[in-house]
Amino acid sequence: ADSRTSVSFYNTSQVSEFILMGFPGIHTWQHWLSLPLALLYLLALTANILILIIIKQEATLHQPMYYFLGILAVVDMGLATTIMPKILAILWFSAKAISLPECFAQMYVIHCFVGMESGIFVCMAIDRYVAICQPLRYPSIVTDSFVVKATVFMALRNSLATIPVPMLAAQRHYCSKNQIEHCLCSNLGVTSLSCDDRTINSIYQLFLAWTLMGSDLGLIFLSYALILHSVLKLNSAEAASKALSTCTSHLILILFFYTVVIVISITHSATMTLPLIPVLLNVLHNVIPPALNPMVYALKNKELRQGFYKILKLDNKGN
C-alpha cells in the first residue's frame, strides 16, 4: 500500500506544463485584443528596423548617441519578440500550453531585456550629461570604445543578475495548479502556483527591482538634474531650448518605462481585486516602449528625421 501511495503522490507531485490563460476576466472576447497587439508589434519591428537602417546608412549618425539608440532598438525588438508570438498564438489558436523549461526561459529573457533597456537609458542619460555639461571633453570621454564597454557591462550585469529569477522559480514545487492567469510567464504569476513557500522569490524580485532599476533611475535623475542645472545657467535661450528638447524626449520615455514597472509591482500585490490591470499593463509595457521609442526619438531629432526622409525618397532619386 505504501508503494502505491508514493507512486500516486509522485504522479500528482509535479505538473508537466503550464497553461497560459491569457487575460483574466475577459477570456471569452480576448481574441479581439490580438488585432491592436499585432499592429503594435508590427509597428515596433518596422520602426526599430528603420532606425537601424538609417543609423547604418547615414555617416553623420555614426556617433555614440545614435549607437545607443541602435542598441535600444535591438533590445526593444528582442523584448517584443520574446512575448508577442506566444501571446498571439494564445489569442488566435488557443495555444495556451507552455512547458516548464520554456516558461522559465521566457521569464529569464524578459527580465534580461527589461534590465537591458533600463541600462541603455542610463547610458543615454550619461551621454547627454557629458554632451551638455562637459561639451569640450565629450569627444575624449564618450568614444566608440566607451559605447562598447558600457554595452558589454550592461549585458553582463543583466544576464548575470537575473539568473536567480528562473532558477528560484524552477526550484518551487508545482503540484496541482498549473493555470497561469496571464499571457506570459511572469515570475510572480508563475510562482504563485507553487505549493511551497515562495518568499525567497518575492524577496529576490524586490531586491532586483530596487538594486538594478533603483540605481538606474537614481543615475538617470542625477544626470538630468545636472543637465537642467547647467542649461538654466546658459545665457542663450536658443541653446537652452535645444538642450532641453533632446532631454524631454528621453525623459518622457524613461518616465513611462519606470512608472509602468512601479505600477505593475504595486498592482501585483493588490491583484485580487482587478487581476486584468497588471496583466494588461505587463503586456503593454513590453510592446508600447518598443513601438514608441523610435518614434519619439525620430520626431525630436533632426538628423534622424532627415535620414528617414532620405530612405523614403530613395526611389525618387533613382538609386
Rank of each mutant, 00 (worst) to 15 (best):
T5D: 12
S13R: 12
V15Q: 04
H27V: 02
T28R: 08
T28S: 11
H31L: 04
P36W: 00
A38K: 05
L39T: 13
L52E: 07
Y67H: 12
F68I: 07
A73L: 08
M77V: 12
I83E: 04
I87D: 00
L88G: 09
C112S: 06
C112F: 08
G119S: 10
V130S: 11
P135S: 07
D144R: 11
F146V: 05
V147T: 11
V147K: 08
F153L: 14
A155D: 02
N158E: 09
P164S: 04
P166E: 06
P166K: 05
C175D: 14
L184N: 06
L188G: 03
T191M: 01
S194K: 00
L206G: 15
W210M: 10
T211G: 08
L212F: 02
Y224D: 08
I227H: 05
H229K: 14
S230T: 14
S236T: 14
A239L: 08
T246D: 09
S249M: 03
H250N: 07
Y258W: 11
V260L: 03
V263I: 07
T267S: 15
T271E: 06
T273F: 13
I277L: 15
I277Q: 08
L284M: 03
L284Y: 01
H285M: 06
I288A: 12
P289E: 01
A291K: 00
N293K: 07
V296F: 05
E303K: 15
N316I: 05
